[in-house]
Nucleic acid binder design. Structure first.
Lengths: 115, 115
DNA sequence: GGGAAGTGTAACTGGTGAGTTACGCGTTTG
DNA sequence: CAAACGCGTAACTCACCAGTTACACTTCCC
């Protein structure tokens, strides 16, 4: 959790994750998107690797990186512990209520039709 | 976003947030829960203040701290950008579909009744 | 009113992080 | 086969962070 939060606390690393969301990319391709030096990006990628947020694979002389979202899910779960009064939770509750009512309506209609 | 993620990247600060989830606490009360020095905790509280994750209010000689969850919500929202294939998003989509169907059914029934 | 309680900050210290240039290893290409 | 490509890491530098002790200010209580 420390490592994951720490990893995304840096804007470059967040941007890298967003880039990888659309599919795997080579280290060079990623580095090319930033104004900082290649080794600097390499260092960031290493942080992400260590945190389990990306997985890399050597393909010839290229190293391809792909996203791993599980650790982000863990962080999101932790954050949900603070959602007690949030609008999001309220929306979820409202949707649940509607679904339950719809099911009851549909059940009642089915009973009338068979009677 | 940097500040928030950076703030929760520390276990002490995460623990402080969890403590405050149950209600406001004085600085001293918070500090008493950790083995580190009082000024160290004070420093952590300052980071949380700066990140907008807590709000403090002087009451006499005490300083009471309370949780602010909005920034955590922002982070959670950002994390949701990585939820494309998750079971959670799929459940949300299913609920939305049901709600839309229920609304259509109800609309259709209302049209029959007035006709 | 004086001393205690409560708490933030300064100054210090040692460790960590993020940028850079230089280097080196493995793969690909002409 | 030699040169180019791709990329990780070492070494360096400077800035930042988190712990500590010391200090100082405000409020409370006897």
């Amino acid at each position: 959790m420390n490592e994951v939060a720490g990893a995304i606390a840096d804007p470059v690393r967040r941007e890298i994750l967003l880039l990888l969301r659309d599919g795997r990319l080579s280290a060079g391709s990623i580095a090319g998107r930033f104004a900082i030096s290649r080794p600097a990006v390499s260092r960031h990628l290493r942080v992400l690797r260590t945190a389990g947020l990306v997985h890399s694979e050597v393909v010839g002389r290229q190293r391809l990186y792909e996203l791993r979202t599980e650790p982000l899910g863990d962080l999101a779960r932790w954050l949900r512990g603070f959602d007690r009064d949030s609008a999001w939770s309220a929306r979820m509750a409202a949707l649940d209520t509607e679904v339950r009512r719809a099911r009851r309506d549909r059940q009642a209609r089915r009973t009338e039709d068979t009677a």
